[in-house]
Design a protein around this nucleic acid. Structure first.
Lengths: 142, 142
DNA sequence: CTAACTGCAAATAATTTGCAGCCGT
DNA sequence: ACGGCTGCAAATTATTTGCAGTTAG
């Protein structure tokens, strides 16, 4: 399950972070968007609810949420952004057109990883897997 | 197979690009390194053979080689760099410590891709897969 | 010869940091 | 009250672009 704004807020408190109006605003935007938003885009949306917020605060809030494992980064072409983190191991399917994100958890890379590890002698720590494409709504026009 | 410097040079000619001393120097460094090098690191090495080269030229040469499909980008943590592109579909196993890269071609993601496509309605165009870990030589120390 | 190429310096773009004042707990 | 948080402006870092001189083909 993807966490709710309340859930996120409570984690912040538990970890000793203050729950300010700015942070609430950022959290709300992230939660109410299925898209993966770049800091700048997120900033624009947050300003609607909280016009005085600074871009710097958005950056700092995102970094904090990321460190707490509440949100994660996704790649979209050369750009990148943040989206809510469902609990546990997972990956993303990102629409390069609108940025919407779908999660999936079954990546079945264990076997491949095992073999690669043996063949190369690498001690594999993790993997980066993401699909790119066009979501249902973006398949028509350009 | 990974392309040789000669192979790359001949492709440049075929495509109507000029083969300058600077380009040769960049190509040689990329070819003689199994690592994935960031533009700045590559620049340092290229200077040994060609001290007067500008960083800008390195960027432009890398971009050109990338467009021709002769080299490809890899991700290493938050950073990124370039490495030789073996022909055909492939992926990388990157050592986060020293940056050395191993290639592999069999990713078996077709089945997963098919299912995701059906489940989400996405028209999947491609995927991003890369393993991160420590190579044989970097597993000991930090 | 001539268009492509090069290097410099300046321009962008994205993100980080120093700092003084503000505010959640 | 106090330490964390905020916003501004300046600093960084990575990459791109304008331009005049250079050079491969």
């Amino acid at each position: 399950m993807r966490p709710s704004a309340k859930k996120i807020a409570s984690v912040l408190r538990q970890k000793g972070h203050k729950l300010t109006a700015q942070r609430r605003a950022v959290i709300n935007v992230v939660v109410n968007s299925g898209e993966h938003l770049a800091p700048a885009a997120l900033y624009e949306r947050v300003r609607r609810a909280h016009p005085a917020i600074g871009l710097v605060t958005v950056y700092r809030t995102l970094e904090m949420l990321h460190e707490l494992g509440l949100i994660c980064r996704v790649h979209r072409g050369e750009k990148h952004g943040y989206t809510l983190a469902p609990s546990g191991h997972h990956h993303h399917l990102v629409c390069t057109e609108c940025g919407i994100v779908a999660d999936f958890t079954d990546c079945d890379l264990e076997v491949l990883q095992q073999r690669l590890s043996q063949q190369t002698g690498f001690k594999i720590e993790g993997h980066l897997l993401q699909f790119l494409g066009y979501c249902r709504d973006c398949q028509g026009g350009t």
